[in-house]
Design a protein around this nucleic acid. Structure first.
Length: 958
RNA sequence: GCGAGGGUAGCCAAGACUGGUCAAAGGCGACAGACUCAAGAUCUGUUCCAGAAGUGGUUCCGGGGUUCAAAUCCUCGCCCUCGCACCA
């Protein structure tokens, strides 16, 4: 079948599903339900395979559960909230080439790209496209319940407002201030996606130390406030014009660059003058905390862009300070230039303050020596030195006894204590700046802005955390191994800034100037899926809090809600009923990147708003798709859209390839070779299923064997599917089963039992249907079944047809065959005659005795002999028995528990081989004879018979 | 740096919690054979090394350890992935 025939076949079934409403799910009393969903994808482009993997995990399970008899709901909405769409639209209107390139790569015609200059156009264009993609992927979604977010959807808008009023009423929303990386030109926060440089950089907190001088303050910035006890002097750059800034009632002296930072972070800031650094050199200032006078000295190593352009000097622990001090002490010219007393300067010595592992009292002195740093200009070496000291100092360091109140504290904790103390005493302040250089996409270097009156969701609230933890404990996590990460995140989350001033979304109900950000308007919307398809058009502006209170909590009065909203009571009750029936959801699946925010927010918000019986039941988490080992991501350019994959391979192959890519948290890979190969196999399977075969009516042991194997496979498949181990499920239900079927055909000389053949084709088709639904529908129809396979009922495992002894016998047979092959290979012989010698009867008795002892846990050589000798047959061969006993004990001890069960009862091996003699002769194309090892009549020219053991006949090849 | 998950044969990937039939499932690729006029598809076999008897040797990122026994448990180190916040 060519790809276009394949696609035509697939869309034929997609149309049939849609026309018949096969996947539209309504509350049905008496039938168990299963409600799955995945986070709605963001609508700034076509859907890519990354979303495909996440989606398919849920979708495939949805199809599986449907076939297990559940009433399954799988809805899908689309996310438009937030900045990226707006930012991208702006870039289009600015004519930015990069953005045009992205649009072209998606396959949007050049003359249509300009229409994307309006954010609203994105929200109209992409959701239908995403629907097309998912439908052509064979999604079994109830599309009646789809929607988009933001105020563009007034119903959803009301829902989010209701949610936020609830959160606020319950005391989970509060006001505070918050530093963000900020673009002064755009006057907007610069998220990672909007950065040309500096991905991952965050606001870092500097402590500003105030040094009073002439009624003003010199402001020195430091990342290590705990080192104030080691201050010996202050550094200023004599060649710089510093600015005098009025901050509140104080005048601060800082670099020009720093004035801009202050403007974004402090209230009431005004530049009032300027002063040369030179003016301060030689003067003394009183250092904060320690209170002693220290000299202001000249230095040129200070980076003016960083901090305030003024640095306090701690030569004991800062290599920069130590080397600068040393330089100056030896630099007579500079000393003279600034009229500094050489003796006084030379008297300045580092003050030891921190004791840390592997270091002496003066780490900076030590490391400058060790690394052979000569002067202040060796910036790279100095950076490295600083890093090294800071790392060990921070984690292992302890403040020594000369550090006042913080003596004896660990550096980690001293830092905070001293900072707070200084700020309280008015000796210090805070300044944020990006932890590394950040450049906005508009080419402007970013700064840190302190956003005031910021609304937060207070995820730090201990009571709230406690409830969330409780909910998490009761949840099922797939895979379970992700639990530690969830626990960590619940613990670690603090306030979350839940609204901003830009982007699409819903405004805060109590303050229209704020727009709720995208991770906060998407936490409980799974409940909205349950009833949104019943919202009547035209009631958009009337749906209010009372409405949601009624539908979700049945609080209030139906009649008055009906009057207010114009939605009749019956419809209201139907919505209420849908919610009650479907909620909570049974599984939400997502990429692993959402564990640390979205999924945990989802729990937080559920426990804040809903009663316990509506809390989430399970989360599934999966990795990111890799294409040939490379991560797919938009920013890295390697993107494969769902539609491109479908065009190349069709929906079925795309689905099964993604499903078998990998399990658990590992990143699954999209294996192109596998896709090609599985496509061939599926076509082959369809041909096989739909063609006529020669069959027979009689039932042979091998038929019972395959039926046993088949039923066992179903059990394993169900187990794996429930845990979302799709690859494992495919292995059991498809690859292994196909292999067993091939073996079965070989064993019955290519003439299968007719009933078994029909059952196998039917079952295999059902097992594959969740993965490759289209080809399975085609087969289902072809073999004359009514209705869709997608809606067929998977039979329960028939425990009675699982026959352990039959499977053991066949395993024995295959092992024996393998042995023959191994011997042939090792000897290079092609058998001209094959002779098998099965174990003598006494061995079986002794073997079973050994297994019995193992089960009782008292298998030892002595015990075994004593027990086995009670048997007449064993006693008759006592000499051989005692020789065999140690080996037997060893062998049985090492058996897997599963094999102990499988091989505990010996079988009539001679008879089993006899029955398959014809098969053996066909396989090896030679004469085959079978003897018991103690048969005096046996043909045994190689004296092999003595090697026979239970489950392992001796073999002789001529 | 912090938190979480990983590193298994040519490649992808099970196994690890509960140590032993583990030279390690399955898939992909490769090679050989059967079928075929041929190719493809399909089926069968091989795919760490050695081997004229079903075996032996050396393996599961690297070092050290526990144990009769380690891919599996402990420890140290190296490397990879995800996340670290207002951003979807």
């Amino acid at each position: 079948m060519k790809i276009d025939e394949q696609l035509a076949m697939e869309s034929k079934w997609q149309k049939k599903w849609e026309e018949s409403g096969a996947f539209e799910a309504d509350a049905r009393e008496g039938q168990p339900k299963f409600f799955l969903n995945v986070p709605y994808p963001y609508m700034n482009g076509y859907l890519h395979l990354g979303f495909g993997v996440t989606f398919l995990h849920a979708e495939i399970l949805a199809r599986h559960m449907r076939m297990r008899g559940y009433n399954v709901l799988m809805p899908q909405a689309f996310h438009c909230t937030g900045l990226p769409i707006v930012a991208a639209a702006n870039r289009i209107s600015e004519g930015e080439e990069m953005q045009f390139g992205i649009m072209r790569d998606m396959g949007i015609p050049q003359d249509e790209i300009v229409r994307f200059n309006d954010p609203v156009h994105w929200t109209k264009y992409f959701p239908p496209q995403a629907m097309i993609d998912l439908k052509s992927l064979g999604a079994s979604v109830d599309w009646r319940r789809s929607f988009i977010t933001t105020r563009l959807n007034p119903f959803y808008d009301s829902f989010v407002k209701w949610q936020f009023r609830k959160l606020k009423d319950n005391g989970f929303v509060r006001l505070g201030e918050h530093p963000v990386i900020w673009c002064p030109k755009d006057e907007a926060p610069v998220g990672d996606h909007d950065r040309l440089e500096g991905e991952g950089e965050t606001p870092a907190e500097f402590v500003l130390l105030k040094f009073p001088i002439d009624g003003k303050f010199l402001l020195a910035a430091t990342l290590r406030p705990e080192t104030v006890y080691g201050q010996t002097n202050l550094w200023v750059n004599p060649d710089i014009e510093y600015k005098e800034v009025r901050v509140g009632s104080e005048i601060w002296v800082v670099s020009e660059e720093a004035t801009r930072k202050l403007a974004e972070q402090k209230k009431d800031v005004e530049v009032v003058g300027s002063v040369s650094g030179r003016d301060f050199v030689g003067k003394t200032v009183r250092a904060p905390v320690i209170g002693s006078e220290i000299p202001v000295l000249p230095s040129k190593f200070i980076d003016q862009a960083k901090g305030t352009g003024i640095v306090t000097s701690v030569p004991s622990d800062a290599p920069d300070d130590w080397i600068a001090l040393k330089d100056l002490q030896e630099d007579e010219k500079t000393l003279a230039e600034f009229d500094l007393d050489p003796d006084e300067i030379k008297d300045i010595a580092p003050i030891a303050i921190i004791t840390s592992e592997g270091w002496g009292p003066l780490p900076a002195v030590e490391i400058v020596d060790r690394m052979g740093i000569e002067n202040q200009m060796e910036r790279d070496k100095l950076e490295k030195a600083k890093d090294e000291i800071y790392r060990t100092g921070y984690y292992t360091g302890v403040m020594n006894e000369d550090c006042g109140d913080i003596s004896g504290m660990k550096v980690e904790e001293a830092k905070d204590v001293i900072k707070r103390k200084m700020i309280e005493a008015g000796e210090a302040d805070i300044l944020y700046e990006p932890s590394g250089e950040v450049i906005c996409r508009c080419l402007t270097p970013a700064v840190v802005k302190l956003v005031r009156d910021q609304w937060f969701l207070d995820y730090g609230d201990p009571e709230w955390k406690k409830l969330t933890y409780e909910a998490l404990e009761k949840m099922r996590l797939l895979p379970e191994i992700s639990r530690r990460q969830f626990e960590y995140v619940v613990d670690w989350l603090r306030e979350w800034a839940c609204a901003h001033h830009h982007g699409l979304g819903t405004s805060l109900p109590w303050d229209e100037n704020w727009v709720i950000e995208s991770l906060s308007d998407s936490t409980i919307y799974m409940s909205y899926y349950t009833f949104c398809h019943l919202l009547p058009e035209g009631s958009a502006d009337k749906v209010d809090d009372d409405f949601f209170d009624y539908v979700l909590f049945e609080s209030g009065d139906a009649k008055s809600v009906a009057e207010k909203t114009g939605i009749d009571v019956e419809t209201l009750d139907a919505m209420r009923n849908e919610f009650l029936y479907w909620y909570p959801f049974d599984l939400r699946n997502s990429g692993k990147d959402l564990v640390q925010n979205h999924l945990v927010f989802c729990i937080f918000n559920h426990v804040a708003i809903f009663p316990q019986e509506s809390w989430p039941r399970a989360f599934g988490v999966n990795g990111f798709v890799k294409l040939e080992g490379q991560r797919m991501s938009k920013s890295h350019g390697i993107v494969t859209y769902i539609r491109h994959a479908i065009k190349a391979w069709g929906a079925d192959v795309t689905r099964i390839t993604l499903a078998q890519g990998g399990e658990g948290l590992d990143d699954p890979s999209f294996d192109v070779d596998f896709a090609d190969s599985i496509g061939r196999k599926l076509r082959q399977w369809m041909r096989f299923a739909l063609s006529d075969h020669e069959t027979r009516g009689d039932v042979q042991p091998i038929d019972r064997w395959f039926r046993s194997v088949m039923n066992r496979a179903v059990g394993r498949y169900n187990e794996a599917m429930e845990l979302l181990y799709l690859r494992t499920a495919l292995k059991h239900a498809y690859f292994d089963l196909q292999g067993d079927w091939n073996w079965y055909l070989r064993r019955c000389n290519d003439i299968p039992n007719s009933e078994l053949l029909a059952d196998f084709v039917e079952l295999q088709t059902m097992l594959l249907a969740p993965f490759v639904p289209h080809v399975c529908e085609e087969i289902w129809e072809g073999i004359g079944k009514e209705g869709f396979v997608s809606l067929a009922r998977l039979p329960e495992t028939d425990e009675d047809s699982i026959k352990v002894e039959l499977e053991a016998s066949e395993k024995f047979f295959r092992n024996t065959l393998d042995d023959v092959r191994q011997i042939s290979k090792a000897t290079g012989m092609t058998p001209a005659r094959l002779v098998f010698y099965t174990h003598p009867e006494w061995m079986a008795n002794m073997f079973e005795t050994a297994v019995g002892l193992r089960k009782e846990g008292r298998l030892e050589v002595g015990v075994l002999m004593k027990e086995a000798m009670k048997d007449d047959l064993v006693r008759a061969s006592s000499k051989q028995a005692s020789k065999w006993a140690p080996k037997l004990v060893d062998q049985v001890t090492k058996m897997k528990p599963s094999d102990v069960t499988m091989f505990s009862q010996c079988i009539d091996e001679k008879n089993y081989l006899e029955e398959s003699k014809g098969f053996l002769e066909r396989e090896f194309k030679c004469e085959v004879s079978i003897f018991t090892a103690d048969d005096p009549e046996r043909h045994d020219p190689g004296s092999r018979a003595t090697g026979a053991r239970p489950w392992r006949p001796a073999i002789f090849i001529e």
